[in-house]
């Protein structure tokens, strides 16, 4: 439908963008208001912008520690998931093995598992290994989320690489593993990178495991840490909005830089070409 985009279209578009962005906009506007204005009236713009809420947000809670924890856990998860998943995705798409359908079925089933169904045995496992309140304590359960996701998306990307390349490599005497390492993997690098971004975001956003396993404040990740800003008696909306702005910035930057890749990755699993 290659319709011309007229004025009504742009009005619709502006409304759409405004609605989806409004919560962020309002949270940002609140975060720079002085305390008195936050808790009195609904005026949009403050005449007296201040960073006081940001200072409070950092001082009352170890926000940067949360960020660092999230970065460490998500990075480790991504590295492990991608290295294991790229091997299996390659094997499933390009090597002559049996039971491909079954293997993909298991992978898809694992991706659909509700985390609540496995949380108590995983909790016991991590407790038994003495890994509560550590990075590995979260990286291990995150494999359940990230590995199937990574295999699923990588399989689509590997599938797109022409098969002739492998055949000529084989004729030139390369072993299957050499073919994988020297020919397929470099060609699939953009797809691998896209998958890595999606796995990273999935690990960054996880809540249930992080809430139960790393209960010590020093080991909390961003989503859990932020949800703990509410105190028992009052809700410090100024601190919360400022913290929200701070933790949203890294994600916004990643999205803005890699938006095309993310879209390619998200849609790769669902649309056939």
């Amino acid at each position: 439908m290659r319709k011309k985009a007229g004025l009504p279209f742009y009005i619709f578009l502006s409304i759409f963008i405004f609605v989806t962005m409004f919560p962020f906009l309002w949270v940002f506007l609140t975060s720079i208001k002085p305390q008195g204005e936050i808790f009195g009236g609904y005026s949009w713009f403050t005449t007296d912008p201040t960073f006081q809420s940001y200072i409070n947000a950092i001082e009352t809670r170890p926000l940067f520690r949360y960020m660092w924890n999230s970065i460490a856990v998500s990075t480790l998860t991504t590295v492990i998931a991608i290295s294991v998943a790229s091997l299996s995705a390659y094997s499933i798409t390009r090597l002559p093995i049996k039971f491909k359908g079954t293997i993909l079925g298991i992978v898809l089933a694992a991706a659909m598992f509700p985390q609540i169904a496995i949380i108590s045995p995983i909790f016991n496992l991590i407790q038994g290994l003495g890994l509560r309140n550590s990075y590995m304590g979260l990286v291990i359960p995150y494999i359940t989320i990230s590995l199937p996701l990574a295999i699923w998306i990588l399989a689509t990307f590997f599938k797109k690489i022409p098969f002739e390349l492998e055949e000529s490599a084989k004729l030139d005497g390369a072993t299957p593993f050499q073919t994988f390492r020297k020919i397929i993997f470099p060609l699939a690098a953009p797809g691998v990178f896209t998958t890595a971004i999606l796995v990273f975001i999935a690990a960054w956003n996880e809540y249930l495991f992080a809430l139960t396993i790393n209960s010590d404040d020093n080991w909390r990740t961003i989503p859990v840490g932020l949800s703990m800003y509410q105190s028992q008696y009052t809700i410090p909306w100024g601190d919360i909005t400022a913290a929200t702005v701070l933790v949203t910035i890294p994600i916004v930057v990643i999205v803005l830089i890699f938006q095309r890749r993310i879209v390619a990755g998200l849609t790769s699993g669902s649309v056939k070409e």
């Binding site: 989806t20 962020f24 956003n205 989503p223 949800s227």
Partner: peptide, 29 residues
């Protein structure tokens, strides 16, 4: 939005940012 128009990037970002932020953070907002 399945048509050619100016500002596709802005739309894409507007679509992706709510998806990308942690659910717990959006719940707080």
């Amino acid at each position: 939005i399945n048509r050619a128009f100016i500002g596709r990037g802005a739309v894409r970002a507007a679509v992706l940012i709510p998806w990308a932020i942690p659910t717990a953070v959006s719940a707080m907002m």
